[in-house]
Simulated scan of single mutants.
Amino acid sequence: MEGIILKGIGGFYYVDTAEGLIECKARGRFRKTVGKPIIGDRVMLEIQPEDGTGYLTDIHPRKNSLVRPAVANLDLLAVVASAAPPVTDPFLIDKVTAIAVHKGIGALVVINKTDEDPGDDLFRIYEKSGIETLRVSALTGEGIERLKDRIRGRVAAFAGNSGVGKSSVLNRLDSGFGAEVGAISDRIGRGRHTTRHVELHPVEGGGYIADTPGFSSFETGQMDLVLAEDLQYAFPEFVPYLGQCRFTGCAHVKEKGCAVCAAVQAGEIAESRHESYVKLYEGVKDLKEWELLKGGTR
Rank of each mutant, 00 (worst) to 15 (best):
Y126G: 07
G28H: 11
E19C: 06
P240C: 03
H60F: 11
I59Y: 04
L122I: 03
K25M: 06
L108I: 11
E132R: 14
A228V: 00
E268L: 14
R154V: 03
R172V: 12
E204W: 14
E2A: 03
H193L: 08
T220E: 00
K63S: 13
A100S: 13
R298S: 02
A72N: 01
H197P: 00
V198L: 07
H193T: 14
I38R: 07
H252I: 06
V198Y: 05
N112R: 02
E116P: 00
F12R: 12
L292T: 14
C258T: 12
V164H: 09
Y13K: 02
K256V: 00
G267H: 15
R190E: 09
R172T: 09
D115S: 02
A262F: 01
E180A: 14
E116I: 12
R68A: 03
K25R: 11
H252S: 08
G249Q: 09
D286I: 07
E289P: 12
V203H: 01
A251V: 04
D149I: 05
G143V: 07
A263N: 08
A78M: 04
K166D: 15
Y281Q: 12
D286T: 12
F12W: 14
L287C: 13
V101C: 10
L21H: 14
H274I: 10
P49K: 15
D115R: 02
R62G: 04
E50Y: 06
G153P: 08
G106A: 11
R135D: 01
H193S: 09
F123W: 02
W290L: 07
S217E: 09
R146H: 10
